[in-house]
Simulated assay, not measured.
Amino acid sequence: MSASPTFEQLLDDAALYSFEHQLHLAEVLGEHAWEADLAEPRFAFTGVQPRVCSRFHLLGSAAPGPRSWLWGWANPQGYPQPILALGEYVRDFGQRHGIDALAEPEVPFDALPGAPTDPNLVAGMLTEAAKAAANNWTSYSGEVGGGTRAAFLVEHPDFTLPPPAPTRVMRVLQQGLAELRLSDHRRAVHAYAVRRGLSPVHDADRLTLNSPGLSATVHFDQLGRIENINASMEQPA
């Protein structure tokens, strides 16, 4: 991550590593529902594999009426400090780096890249940027009435990623690059490789990744987009 990243660069920095965390969360929880008590505070998942989070953090909410995102620390309802502290850290990060979307109490939908209109998409964008700023990676969002979407970062030992497996790494790269909206493919792959311990090595038009059982070369075209990925995989014995 550069000394002063832009909002869009934070989204690229978070994209693939966050994507893998969300895949893992879905596998851990299976079919589920969620419940939260912000006053207690308590955040839990119910269903076939219930979990009570060891910690959780309210980031904010995206509302269709005012067409804006409101950070949790700016909410006039005054939630408990422990669930707001991480959002305040993100706010301070935004102030230090001149990123208004992280620093301002309320962010109009139109102020975000692409001027999104869907509260779910808006909540996702602010959550991804917050993940990269705070280095906290598992998120959950849900409707809280009237089309408003609330976003949280959630923690539990079971949400921690296992060591990188070759097949999972390739799935993250291939599926993530196909489905996620990225501004800079090379930056996104490099950020993921660093966080996953894949020993990235740059060349003029390629990025080489290595981990136990995996050797992959990601080729980029002249515009910096992924052209192809050549990989050799062996499952560890």
Rank of each mutant, 00 (worst) to 15 (best):
N136Q: 12
Q222F: 10
Y17N: 04
G197H: 12
G213L: 07
A130M: 13
H202Q: 09
L180R: 03
M233V: 09
T160N: 04
M1L: 12
W71H: 15
G224N: 11
N75G: 05
R171Y: 10
D118W: 00
A33Y: 13
A3H: 06
L11P: 02
N120W: 11
T148L: 02
G147T: 00
A133S: 11
P64V: 00
P163W: 10
L102H: 03
A39W: 00
M233R: 12
V169M: 12
Q174V: 05
F19G: 14
L182Y: 00
L86P: 11
V122P: 01
H24Y: 15
P116Y: 02
Q174F: 08
R96C: 08
E8D: 05
P163I: 07
P162H: 14
R149M: 13
V189C: 09
A165G: 10
E234A: 07
I226L: 10
Y192W: 03
T6A: 12
R67I: 00
G47Q: 08
A62N: 11
T208H: 03
L16V: 02
A33P: 00
E20T: 15
A134G: 06
E20L: 07
Y89A: 05
H32N: 13
L161F: 08
L112F: 01
S61C: 06
P212N: 08
R225Y: 07
F45V: 14
N135P: 08
